[in-house]
Lab assay of single mutants.
Amino acid sequence: MPSETPQAEVGPTGCPHRSGPHSAKGSLEKGSPEDKEAKEPLWIRPDAPSRCTWQLGRPASESPHHHTAPAKSPKILPDILKKIGDTPMVRINKIGKKFGLKCELLAKCEFFNAGGSVKDRISLRMIEDAERDGTLKPGDTIIEPTSGNTGIGLALAAAVRGYRCIIVMPEKMSSEKVDVLRALGAEIVRTPTNARFDSPESHVGVAWRLKNEIPNSHILDQYRNASNPLAHYDTTADEILQQCDGKLDMLVASVGTGGTITGIARKLKEKCPGCRIIGVDPEGSILAEPEELNQTEQTTYEVEGIGYDFIPTVLDRTVVDKWFKSNDEEAFTFARMLIAQEGLLCGGSAGSTVAVAVKAAQELQEGQRCVVILPDSVRNYMTKFLSDRWMLQKGFLKEEDLTEKKPWWWHLRVQELGLSAPLTVLPTITCGHTIEILREKGFDQAPVVDEAGVILGMVTLGNMLSSLLAGKVQPSDQVGKVIYKQFKQIRLTDTLGRLSHILEMDHFALVV
């Protein structure tokens, strides 16, 4: 994948999101292997301009796509893939009243899908469409860049269908997702969380590099694949309309690839034109409109599966009536509230959605109805927002919020430890010299600072030695090549209790 991002070429006709291997024109390309080798690009942008032909009021008969309808489940399912879809609609009884809503608040519980998330729908649909058009064949390999849930859905379907599955996901995604993927037989590649989507090191860039190296491999490409919004247009939206008897006044959905909100909203605009569509985008993402909503100094966020630093091709923002931004604290607070007060075992993005819903639905009156999409299960986040310690460490809970008995030293300040200034190293000294210094002084790690004293990161003896043994660096290389740029900081005025929580999850903390 090139470091400079080429513009994806656009073909003359058809839909841009065809499933299957992508040609340089962004659509299915038939021909000899030699032709494909000559024409197939190194990668295709996940934010390529959409060429979708959908228009409100256009006859369904003019759609270029294969459409399906929700099917009634048999008493005995032939395999677990038949437990994807037909998820329950559940009334939220307490939270709406707590925040003064007059309307009825309903939750579409997508964590009841077989793999635990709304992404099971698009995973199965992308595979079925690729099999139907002859792209996927027995023994082929599926590769997908994902925040985890699409990966789980694909790995689940691949396990049943017999495909090899490789999932490329950023490091910030939970260990629970990784464990589930491994249990399903998927191979996992992790990428830096802070890598831009168009960087060769991003999950998108690495996935395309693997595709170019592995024979008979395919990126189904949830960011561009029409099967993504079509899955929701054909099934999720129809289920909502049936469950609500066609009567709903507002739908609120958090947005990642945009397939969920695009597919549902398009069908609702056709069948229930008075329904307002509300999009939820986390602070630090750029999906919301108008652009002024996205202006923030924050560039990272903890909530998973929603928000991006690019506009995915499948996201149709014209069908969203209003956007709201959400933050991590309210997302996790509301997710825990949904679990504790409503018994809905949902993930953090569901918290984002409901946090926005109780604001947006203030305009609705008694007798009206708001539906929220709860995308995934708490299963993926047992060591994250479900953990009091994690919430404390991230600053989303305060010590006084917890009532468990603490040891005698818990409320003492870090400054009472009488710490001395640490050994520091410059980023320009060599790895070999740094190892000598650390061994001589008896230290395992040291902060790396520039000549102005600005902290650049941390270097550890173990990481340097393993990097040297693996051949990633040489003793003569500058130590700046092996620094940890993500590390926890703590102030002298913070409590030892807070430091204790940090050290339970990290090997060190830097006192500043």
Rank of each mutant, 00 (worst) to 15 (best):
Q243R: 09
T146V: 07
D47K: 05
E171Y: 05
R132E: 10
K94H: 13
G14F: 09
K269F: 02
Q242I: 12
C275Q: 04
S202G: 03
L56T: 11
A183L: 05
G263I: 00
D129R: 02
I261D: 01
G246N: 02
V204M: 09
I167R: 07
A253T: 14
H66K: 04
E187L: 06
L77W: 05
P12E: 10
P41R: 07
E34G: 12
S199Q: 07
Y163I: 03
S63A: 15
V178S: 07
P145V: 02
K39W: 14
K36C: 15
N216Q: 07
A114W: 06
S227P: 08
L210H: 01
P192E: 06
F111Y: 10
A24V: 15
C15S: 08
S61D: 05
F111M: 05
K98I: 12
T146D: 04
D35R: 09
D245H: 08
Q7R: 07
P64C: 04
Y223T: 04
G274Y: 11
M169S: 01
P64A: 13
R91F: 07
G205F: 12
A157L: 04
L124C: 08
K36F: 15
S174M: 00
P49W: 13
W54K: 06
E110P: 01
S117A: 06
S23D: 09
T53K: 06
K75T: 10
Q243F: 06
I95A: 03
Q7K: 12
R164Q: 04
R224N: 09
G31E: 13
G115Y: 07
I214V: 06
L220K: 00
D120W: 05
T193Y: 09
S61A: 12
L124S: 14
R18M: 07
P170F: 03
G115S: 08
E144Q: 07
G258F: 01
A107Y: 02
I152H: 00
N113P: 06
K72S: 03
S117N: 06
S117P: 04
D221A: 02
A186N: 03
P59I: 13
E4S: 13
S3Y: 09
E201K: 07
I143D: 04
L106T: 09
P138A: 02
V90L: 03
L28T: 10
G185F: 02
G148Y: 00
A237Y: 05
V168A: 07
I166F: 07
G100Y: 01
M89Y: 06
S199K: 06
G100C: 07
L268F: 07
L136Y: 07
H65E: 01
H67N: 04
D79C: 14
T141Y: 07
C103N: 05
Y233C: 02
G85E: 06
I84G: 08
S123A: 09
K247W: 08
K269I: 04
Y223H: 00
D179L: 06
D35W: 03
N228L: 00
Q7P: 15
V252S: 07
P74Y: 02
C272H: 10
G116L: 06
G14A: 03
S202F: 06
G134K: 07
S227Q: 09
K271L: 10
L241G: 07
I127V: 13
T87R: 06
C244Y: 01
F111G: 05
G246M: 05
K172T: 05
R164Y: 12
K97A: 02
G139Q: 05
K72M: 04
P192Q: 07
S23V: 04
A195N: 06
S3E: 12
K119A: 05
I152C: 02
M126A: 08
M173C: 05
G151W: 02
D238V: 10
L184N: 00
V118L: 12
Q222G: 00
V252F: 09
T141N: 10
C52E: 02
V189E: 08
N212Y: 04
P229F: 04
T235D: 10
D179N: 04
R45T: 04
G134N: 08
A158D: 02
A226V: 10
A265H: 06
P70Q: 10
P49I: 08
M126K: 06
G85A: 09
S147K: 03
P70H: 09
